[in-house]
């Protein structure tokens, strides 16, 4: 696997800030950002359920492996030089349930968090 496509929610301030932060990080795997359910996303992945990608972060490997929600977050961490170790740590059987809970909670409240933190989606 040499590249990952990240389908993010362009309407969410938090995602926008995360995108900017990710752009600055040193990476072991190339990350391409595509707004979810956009024309480009549909063109790239014609058989994907695009309504589902609006609900949570989705990451797709260059061979078509789809990671959804908390797994997608772990894959993004795995792509970063500084955080690859953390992706393994958070994915251990002891920590994975907590990781999933925390990530889901952030994801479901992403608009509120973005608003409270004053992050703009543009």
């Amino acid at each position: 696997m040499f590249a990952l496509t990240v389908l993010y929610d362009p309407q969410c301030g938090l995602c926008h800030r995360a995108h900017e932060w990710l752009a600055e990080q040193s990476k072991l795997v190339e990350l391409t950002f595509v707004p979810c359910a956009s024309e480009e996303a549909r063109k790239r992945f014609p058989q994907l359920n695009h309504d589902l990608t609006k609900q949570d972060l989705t990451v797709i490997g260059d061979h078509g492996a789809v990671y959804f929600g908390p797994k997608a977050w772990l894959m993004v961490l795995w792509a970063l030089t500084r955080y690859r170790d953390w992706s393994y740590r958070l994915a251990t059987p002891e920590l994975l349930p907590t990781t999933k809970r925390v990530v889901s909670a952030i994801s479901q409240n992403r608009y509120q968090i973005g608003r409270v933190a004053g992050l703009s989606s543009r």
Partner: peptide, 23 residues
């Protein structure tokens, strides 16, 4: 440890597979 722990396998398995339209 930092230099050797650089695993190449992803931390989690995929949820599903989809086709990728090559550009």
């Amino acid at each position: 440890r930092r230099s050797t722990a650089r695993g190449h396998h992803p931390p989690v398995g995929p949820d599903t597979f989809t086709t990728v339209q090559q550009e």
